[in-house]
Amino acid sequence: MKFCSPLVVILLLVLFVSLPHFNNASVLSDACSKAAANDIKINRDFCLTSLQVDPKSASANLTDLFHISINLSITNTTRAISHIRYLLSNSAYAHLKDDLSFCQDQYTEAIGCLYGAIKQVRLSSNDDHTNVNWIITEAMTAMDDCEDESSNKSILSKERGNAFQLCAMALNFLNNFRKL
């Protein structure tokens, strides 16, 4: 009777250990594809690239992807506030002081909403995320209000676009929890 060569055994072992990773990579890819198909504000490549920044995304389910996207949105929104503070301290942007101050308030409100969404999702059941949806939508509205009120629409468009898209992804994942 012949035994399998050590190389074959190692190859099978590597394949066996790798299968969950490939399956979860598929979960991530499927989740981003579905999110992009469900919402024109979500770009599939942005979704994948953003979520892959977090090593936990490789083994994530929709609940995990929700938390990752919310945390990334908080990070992006915090960066936007830092950028606003920089612009407020720069005399070249003195003519935008009122707009920037308004945006700083709006982004600060958005961060509060996003932290509130994380807290609320822990308190609610998988079947009822109405309050969480509303809270995340409030954060997105605050970001939109900044954009709508600003006389220089391009000054924060990248920050707003990234944080807004991450929020849209979180909403999509949240609304699909019950389908797990």
Rank of each mutant, 00 (worst) to 15 (best):
R122Y: 02
S124H: 01
Q106C: 07
R85V: 14
H67E: 10
F66C: 07
T141P: 01
E109Y: 13
S69R: 12
D105A: 07
S101T: 10
S50C: 04
S154P: 06
S91H: 11
I10R: 02
V53M: 08
T49C: 00
N38K: 02
L48V: 08
P55T: 15
S5H: 12
N172E: 05
I136C: 01
L72W: 03
M1D: 12
M169V: 08
N131K: 07
H21N: 10
A168N: 07
N133E: 03
R122F: 01
S33L: 08
F164Y: 11
L13G: 12
W134G: 00
Q106W: 03
A35W: 00
L180W: 12
G112I: 06
N38S: 09
I84A: 00
S151Q: 11
A139S: 03
N90V: 13
Y115E: 04
N131F: 10
L166W: 12
N176Y: 11
L15Y: 14
S33V: 13
E149T: 13
R85W: 06
S29K: 10
A60G: 11
H95Q: 12
S150T: 00
S33Y: 05
D145P: 07
Q104M: 06
L48C: 01
L88I: 14
I118L: 13
M1W: 08
N38V: 09
F164V: 01
S29N: 05
F164T: 08
F102H: 10
E138D: 12
I135L: 00
S157A: 11
S5M: 05
A163I: 05
C47R: 05
L88F: 05
S73P: 03
R122Q: 04
I68E: 03
L72Q: 10
N43G: 04
N76I: 02
H83G: 06
A117H: 07
K97R: 09
Q165L: 04
R44F: 12
K34Y: 11
D98A: 09
I84C: 02
M140L: 08
N24T: 10
Q104Y: 11
D127H: 09
A37N: 14
A31D: 06
